[in-house]
Design a protein around this nucleic acid. Structure first.
Lengths: 102, 102
DNA sequence: CAGTATCCAGACCGATACTG
DNA sequence: CAGTATCGGTCTGGATACTG
């Protein structure tokens, strides 16, 4: 089985995702269908559009998210988990399970 | 159930601990009983003793590792997973599972 | 062998302003 | 509404040298 973009090291992705501020939060939101840029910035106090877009770009590059642009006025954009992204974010479930054990 | 040192947020630990370069690698090594500082620095190309000790200190502070010093000449030191550390590092199994799926 | 101290280039990220 | 550009303070981590 192969990732959509390229061969990847899950540990590297995990480190990148966890090492950047906001990424974990953004992923959690998107999992709950908070998946439009406007909603996402508003979902976290202190998160700016600049940083949000840096994170989204990274997540897309890692094959975790995919982006859909709707040619409307005003523009509408949605980010969704790819199949790989869904499997990857199972790790986040593991985090929750671990949290509940404490 | 409670952590040995204090009440913690696993997501915070993840961000603080796994978000740092080398930590994932160090944990994986210690799980395989590569648990002496000298072995650990040699196990990764580019890892220095300074960074290694920063990571080990952090892992101890979060209750994931414990340290044993043997009063010998030359000095011998070993790092081991705590009970919490073992549960925490189940995440690494999840990482491996995901990696093998690719 | 184990661990600490210092230096410093580069990454990170918040604030702000701007374009399509 | 979505996204990019720039600036600047802070933190990270690699190189090196040193102590117990």
């Amino acid at each position: 089985m192969s990732n959509s973009s390229q061969d990847v090291d899950v540990a590297t992705i995990l480190q990148n995702v966890l090492g950047c501020k906001w990424t974990l939060h953004i992923l959690a939101q998107i999992r709950q269908n908070v998946n439009r840029p406007g909603e996402l910035v508003r979902s976290a106090d202190g998160l700016t559009t600049k940083v949000l877009n840096e994170r989204l770009t990274k997540l897309i590059r890692f094959g975790i998210l995919q982006k859909t642009s709707y040619p409307e006025v005003p523009p509408r954009v949605e980010y969704e988990l790819t199949e790989f992204g869904k499997r990857f974010s199972n790790l986040l479930d593991e985090v929750d399970r671990l949290q509940n054990e404490l």
